[in-house]
């Protein structure tokens, strides 16, 4: 169970992206809705996805790009900024993914 205690002591400092995403309601599909061909990323200079994905789905580990679709907010930014067209982008099926209630 990923429920958390209400209260905001821990909110007095900058939240990690995972903790921010935990605020939302999710029904994540076991099938990824976005596929990244990371072989195209090695010679990508800016890797704009890393800073601009608002869900932090793109991270660098030992300067290699690592992608995880689970926290995706379905905004389309990565697809737009990727200079290598390395991203096969779509929305999740069956109503899965993020479930907004207050936005």
């Amino acid at each position: 169970m990923s429920s958390r205690e209400s209260g905001n002591q821990q909110l007095l400092k900058i939240q990690r992206i995972d903790d921010l995403l935990q605020r939302n309601l999710w029904d994540v599909d076991h099938r990824p809705h976005i596929v990244v061909d990371t072989s195209r990323c090695t010679d990508c200079e800016y890797k704009p996805c890393v800073l601009l994905c608002p869900a932090g789905c793109y991270t660098l580990v030992d300067s290699k790009l690592l992608f995880s679709y689970e926290g995706c907010l379905e905004c389309g930014t990565c697809r737009t900024v990727c200079p290598r067209e390395a991203i096969t982008w779509n929305y999740p099926v069956s109503g899965r993914g993020v479930l907004y209630r207050f936005s």
Partner: peptide, 26 residues
Amino acid sequence: PNTQAVRFDPKTGTLIREGVPSIVNP
């Protein structure tokens, strides 16, 4: 109830189910 959205009120010792949408048990 989508248990992700259920919170616990430590003061009253009860689960906060208000506004928690339901889902088919995964």
